[in-house]
Design a binder for these strands. Structure first.
Lengths: 209, 209
DNA sequence: TTCAATTGACTGATCGATCAGTCAAGATAG
DNA sequence: CTATCTTGACTGATCGATCAGTCAATTGAA
């Protein structure tokens, strides 16, 4: 009962995600964070013990939402069909760009994880590697049996491209000049996927085309 | 005379680049930084006035080295030749990956800049946009007159791919499994360029291939 | 040549602010 | 009552920044 009332725990996680996203781990303060969540600073420590643990909780929470969706989308793809890779890449990107991805909130945290800070290595290993392995497999198969080494390479590049887009700041529009009309999300995703697929083919089958 | 003796100013800039790179802006402390440079903390403020100004000095310094090299390499490319785009992309990537790029030192700072923090927007605009414009132009021409909007898109994706590689942490090797032998720098650059060129063509000329 | 005046580089001590984290006590519910 | 939840008050450490002042080198006037 009273299910949809926002609990203190929900508010804390939500505020933490926003705060970490906007200021980064070191830039975010427990005090500002508690104010944002309308709880006392002590309550944060009661539930999460430490700032690091809270940070990990945020990432575990969000990465589970994203990766569950990714796997769900991946599993319904027939990897033997022609445009399988295109579907795989969209299954990788869409959950991170959509509402499940936490919108702007999670964007910078994600970009930080990509950057590969020493602090986050173990966490990335725990939260993202299992799903990543599945996608490396899928990429390998979708490309007709490319080596896992090359598939992992493509996966890494793909995440880089995703990161460059996920925290959109209008720079591409500025550099593009002219009218500078921001791109629709669905169109951007399509561009993104096409770029990655094109690049993947160029690496995996350098002789064709 | 006595030209190659390390001055205090040099040591400070160098230590700052390392410290900011390893800990990020908020994670780095002026005290640790001064210890690293073997100067007093006060000297940092004497020369750079504030932490933010020091950070900006580091980026202005490094970006100038990188972008001067980029332009130099870009200007000797014949944009009408067949594999012009490949050369352009290498001109964009090589200076950032080589010794001028500051090696690991500048890597994470660069990744942070890509992430697009609000704090760095104006600085990126000042230090990177002029060169970026030149490359967007070159990409547009090398692709036979693609619109600047699409060229800017490709430029943005390219930087994302670069960022994913510049702070190498061995994750790709781990995901690739098997022997996990780290890739040679020159080979990686070639892979990188081929991926981007393939992706660029896929976006700019969706009908071909 | 000599000596005061000025400058630039640099330091140790210290400032108030803010940090993450602690703790005992109050509130609330089963 | 008991156990969980929540709070305000507090701590030591550390933050970026400021300060007065030292020291060596340079300048300028006599």
């Amino acid at each position: 009962m009273d299910e949809n009332r926002s609990t203190a725990l929900d508010r804390m996680l939500q505020a933490a995600e926003l705060e970490f996203s906007e200021k980064g781990f070191n830039g975010a303060s427990m005090k500002a964070l508690s104010t944002r969540a309308n709880v006392s600073q002590s309550l944060l420590h009661y539930h999460f013990a430490s700032k690091v643990k809270l940070y990990e909780a945020v990432i575990r929470n969000r990465s589970r939402l994203i990766n569950d969706d990714r796997i769900e989308r991946l599993e319904i793809i027939d990897l033997s069909q022609d445009n399988a890779l295109h579907a795989v890449i969209k299954a990788l990107f869409l959950p991170a760009l959509g509402p499940l991805g936490g919108g702007r909130a999670y964007a910078r945290i994600f970009a930080d994880l990509i950057a590969g800070h020493e602090r986050d290595k173990a966490l990335v290993h725990e939260c993202y590697d299992p799903t990543a392995q599945r996608f490396v497999d899928a990429i390998s198969k979708a490309l007709g049996g490319t080596s896992r080494t090359v598939a992992a390479q493509i996966y890494q590049f793909s995440l880089g491209v995703l990161a460059s887009v996920i925290s959109r700041d209008g720079r591409a529009e500025r550099l593009g000049g002219e009218h500078a009309v921001p791109m629709e999300d669905s169109v951007l995703l399509e561009q993104l996927a096409r770029f990655v697929v094109g690049g993947a083919h160029a690496i995996a089958r350098p002789n064709t085309c």
